[in-house]
Every structure is written in C-alpha cells, then in structure tokens.
Amino acid sequence: MIDIGESLGSLRQMRRNGTLLRRYLTGEFDQVWREIRAYPRIDGELRDEVMEVADATMRRVAQNADLIASRLQTVGWQAHSSSYQDLRTPPRRGDEAVFARIVEISGAPIPPTLLAFWRAVGGINWVWDYNSENPPPDLGFDLPSEEHDALCIFAPSVLTDLFDEWIYQKASIGPDAEHQLQIDLAPDYLHKANISGGSPYCILVPSFGADPLFSDERHGLPFLDYLRLAFRWAGFPGLDQHAARSDVQDFVVRFGKDLIPF
C-alpha cells in the first residue's frame, strides 16, 4: 500500500526551490549547501536546480585550482603523473562517455557535486612525483611528504579500469542485491608519499543526495567540504595537523592568496 504522505514528500523534493542559484551567487555559499544537503534524495526538477548550483560552485573551484597549480608550476612542482594526471587535467570530450558508463553500471545518477567537479574542473593532482630524479622544490616548510596529503581527485579517464571490477562485483552478488560501488578518487596520504598505506579516498554509489561522503579520508567530510578544507590549506590539507607552525601559516598565505570562497 502506498504511503500518501511519503509520496507527497517525494514530490516536494523533486520540485525546484527557485532561489538556490541566485542566493548562492550572492554569497550564501554555506547556507545554500546546508539546505541542499537536507534533501535525502535529489530528483526531477530539484536535481536540475541543484546541478546549476553545483556547476557554479565547481567553476569557482576550477578558478582556485588554476591559481594554486600556477604557483606550484612556478616553483617547479611536478605531479606524479604515471598513473594519474597533470597538476590539473581539464575536462575532455570523452568524459561524458565515462559518466554514462558509471550511471549504467551503478544504476543511478552521479552525485551532483562529483559530476559538477568532473565537468568544470576535470582532475587535480598535486602529489609530488616521487619517481622524479629531482628532489621536490622547497615550499617553505620542512615536513615529510606523508604529512602533506596533497590534493588529488582523479580525472574521469582514470576510472575506466574500475568498470570490469564493478561488473564482476555486481554479477557475483546477483542482479537484485543492493550493493554500493566504490569510485576511487585519490590515493591515501601514505600512498601519495610512496609508502604502503590504506584504502583509496572514494565515493560510494549509488548515492541519492547532492553531496556524498568522501570516504576513507580522515576528516569524514562530504566531498564539497573536503574540497573547502583542501583549499583552506592551499591544496595540502594534511597541513591542518601543523596549524600552529609559522612556516605552514606563511605557505598558506602565499599559495592561498586570492582564492575565492565556494
């Protein structure tokens, strides 16, 4: 028997709010996203509106990413690109085919913040290339690389290797069984330093809200808030464990100058 109250609630959730993008663009960044996250499921017209906000958000992230990537490039920072990407990998034409495949295998839309990130930013990789013959340039603080936890979010093209594994997982548990697939988006802080470590940072799908948890990362934040944290520390969120150090504070001021809120 259909629960009428539940059905009406679902319909309300699918309707456009009508004010979210305007309010976001006038600076209500935190408030708008708190309201969006309050919806347990993003469907229909509401998803269209949330995607508008997510796209606007990630365009600002892209602007910040370019600022920091330019500063890293100026000092000679090299991305570990053998299996990831450059300092920033712009979106590519073939990405839409990757999105369609993820939707097909997972059976649900890609969460708005992740989809908007891929469409506006592409990929970010500020993990130092530990295979380089050169030592990393001096960023102004003396900490081992496992303390950096440099920002890294894989571009969509990196994920195609996961598809066969996902298909095998779904086949092994049966077509009707509920099962979340793991979108691996970054190595953990130890692997980023070429040390055997733990599970990759990831997002589990299907996920029906707007901003899923960035899983297996120590802060336990939604994806958008993880990005906010990363940029608060000029792209090296591991530095939050050394917030009292003056050299860390100086680096954040220099490399985080002129970043815009999102």
Rank of each mutant, 00 (worst) to 15 (best):
I2M: 10
E6H: 12
E6K: 15
L8V: 15
S10H: 12
Q13W: 06
M14K: 11
M14F: 02
R15T: 12
L20Y: 11
R22H: 14
Y24W: 14
G27T: 09
R34Q: 14
E35Q: 13
R37A: 13
Y39K: 10
P40Q: 07
R41N: 11
L46N: 09
L46R: 15
D48L: 15
V50G: 04
E52M: 15
V53C: 14
A54D: 10
A56C: 05
R60L: 14
A62G: 12
N64Y: 03
N64A: 04
A65S: 13
A69Y: 02
R71Q: 10
Q73V: 03
T74N: 09
T74R: 10
A79H: 05
A79D: 07
Q85W: 05
P90N: 09
G94T: 13
G107F: 08
A108I: 09
P111Q: 04
P111L: 10
P112A: 15
T113C: 03
L115G: 09
V121T: 10
G122T: 07
G122K: 06
V127N: 01
W128G: 05
E133Q: 09
N134Q: 15
P137W: 08
F141V: 12
F141A: 07
D142S: 11
L143I: 04
P144L: 13
P144N: 12
P144G: 13
I153F: 00
T160G: 11
F163E: 11
D164M: 02
D164R: 10
W166I: 13
I167H: 08
Y168H: 11
K170V: 10
S172R: 14
S172D: 14
G174Q: 12
P175I: 12
D176V: 06
A177W: 05
L181I: 11
I183W: 01
L185G: 03
P187H: 07
H191K: 13
K192E: 00
A193I: 02
V205W: 05
V205Q: 06
V205Y: 01
P206F: 08
S207W: 03
A210L: 07
P212Y: 04
P212L: 04
Y226F: 14
R228I: 02
R228V: 03
L229Y: 00
A230Q: 00
R232W: 00
G235P: 05
G235S: 11
L239K: 03
D240Y: 06
H242C: 01
A244Y: 07
R245L: 09
S246I: 06
Q249A: 14
D250S: 15
F251Q: 02
V253N: 06
R254Q: 15
I260S: 06
P261N: 08
